Simulated scan of single mutants.
Amino acid sequence: MSTLRLGTRRSALATTQSSWVADRLRALGHDVELVEVSTEGDRDRETPLAQLGGTGVFVSALREALAEGRVDLAVHSLKDLPTAADPRVVVAAVPAREDVRDALVARDGLTLGELPSGATVGTGSPRRRAQLEALDLGLALTDLRGNVDTRLAHVHEGRLDAVVLAAAGLRRLGRADEVTEYLDPLQVLPAPGQGALAVEVRADDEATRAAVAPLEDPDARACVTAERSLLAELEAGCSAPVGALAEVVEGLDSTELSLRAVVAAPDGSSDLRRSLTGDPAEAADLGRRLARLLLEDGAADLMPTSTERLVTERAQ
């Protein structure tokens, strides 16, 4: 087979994630070349993601490069993928998932509960903001964009007391030692798909799809399928910040898929948390059923009054 051209964003995290996939493909005997693709989300680090069009701005340029044949596959943080399908491409593999939790990096080694009232905490995620506000700790939450280094520098240089990021990104970059607390999902549920990677190929490229198929982790696929189907169902009638976490667990008689989710008011004034279990083979249906339960219980009432849809998560 000819060299596989792997499209990647140019950020340190994106390159690290793409290199991780490339190394595993090389171990399978493939030649792999990394091809940098610039996205609008990378070029503009100041404008809030919601105004740029959501985290899809990190995905669209890579998908165009795929569709035009400039690259053969692309690696995304799965939580960045829009839930609407793009018929030109397919997620050919979801590798084993990293840590799904959010992580706090705070000055002086402080935990969330140790931060004083009025402490400034940066996050670019409406989901994180809403759930942190709901904890009623008196924190001053502020919007934050930029790559991991830029965000951490706000703490190290004293501009913020703390930042909240995805634990997976810090671990992949070898910076987990800077985490002062991993946030318990019982308090702050992660974004749908957080910690997982998506390897996309052109829908009609059977050769590349077969090449990346060995990277697939069935449990990770089932979990993110449930989380993303919930998100897709909620987006039809609810644009409040959403967190979700699915886990494959041992049931009484067989393996089960446990799914928890939260829909929160943007200001954290109220939220709904619900859970269901089901068959991992019916992950998408489980997500849809839990979304419908949330909507029946009033999740739509938590929608923001603005006509602009909020971003459910995301930038690394």
Rank of each mutant, 00 (worst) to 15 (best):
D108V: 02
L310Y: 05
D253V: 15
S229D: 07
R151P: 00
A162H: 04
L252S: 14
D143I: 03
A284D: 05
R159Y: 00
A240W: 09
V105Q: 08
A50M: 02
A284N: 02
D108A: 15
E181R: 15
G158M: 08
L49A: 15
E157K: 03
T208F: 01
L6Q: 10
R107L: 09
L6M: 11
E313I: 03
L310E: 03
D271C: 11
R43L: 12
D31S: 13
V262S: 11
A176K: 07
D285L: 14
S269T: 01
L144C: 11
A27T: 10
G109V: 04
R159P: 00
R107H: 02
L230N: 03
L245W: 04
L259G: 12
Q131A: 04
T55I: 12
L144T: 03
L141H: 07
S117P: 04
P304R: 09
E216N: 12
G69D: 02
N147Y: 00
L78H: 13
T83N: 06
V21F: 13
L110H: 08
V163P: 05
G268R: 04
G118W: 01
Q316N: 10
R274D: 06
Q17L: 14
A220D: 01
D149W: 05
A85E: 06
A162M: 03
L81A: 08
V71M: 11
G122E: 07
A226N: 07
H156M: 13
R70N: 13
A210N: 03
R10G: 11
H154Q: 05
T55V: 12
L144P: 02
A168H: 08
R5I: 01
L230P: 01
E181P: 10
R63S: 10
R274Y: 06
P304H: 08
V248H: 04
D271W: 10
L66C: 03
L135Q: 10
A14Q: 10
A210C: 01
E157D: 08
H156I: 12
A167Q: 08
A134E: 01
A134P: 01
D99M: 07
M303E: 15
L245G: 08
G54M: 14
R260V: 00
R292S: 05
G53A: 10
L6R: 09
L290A: 08
H30A: 14
G53D: 09
G146A: 09
P190Q: 12
S229P: 02
E181I: 14
T142P: 02
D42T: 05
E206Y: 04
L152R: 10
E46H: 15
T307V: 12
A261S: 03
P116R: 14
V212D: 11
A222Y: 05
L112C: 12
F58E: 07
V100P: 04
G41E: 07
L34T: 07
A103I: 05
T208K: 00
R127I: 00
Q51V: 05
C238H: 06
S125H: 04
R45W: 11
T8Y: 06
P126V: 06
A265H: 00
V179C: 10
R314T: 04
V201I: 12
L132G: 10
P192C: 12
R273S: 04
T120A: 15
D102M: 14
L252M: 13
L293M: 01
